[in-house]
């Protein structure tokens, strides 16, 4: 049955990957966090679909200073 929906699932998966990857790249390049550490944030960003990257970008990442 999954096959039937595949054309619909692919864009969703792609978008989720874009979110997760941009968060991952950002956090690996900056490595500064308001709280938590690198390891925790990698886990959150990769394994919490959608919510992980949202949390990282809104409250997790450190200042650009």
């Amino acid at each position: 049955m999954i096959q039937n929906y595949l054309p619909f699932l692919i864009p969703i998966i792609v978008l989720e990957l874009i979110l997760a990857l941009s968060a991952l790249i950002h956090l690996l390049r900056h490595q500064s966090f308001r709280f938590g550490n690198l390891f925790i944030w990698i886990i959150i960003v990769l394994f919490l679909q959608i919510i992980g990257p949202i949390l990282y970008f809104t409250i997790g990442r450190g200042e650009d200073a």
Partner: peptide, 28 residues
Amino acid sequence: RNYRVLLLFSVSALFGMMSPLTAKMMPD
């Protein structure tokens, strides 16, 4: 540059796509 646009647009697009799909796939 602070990723607000990325977050809002991608999450909105995801909601737009996922909502009908989840409804459709629920029985399966």
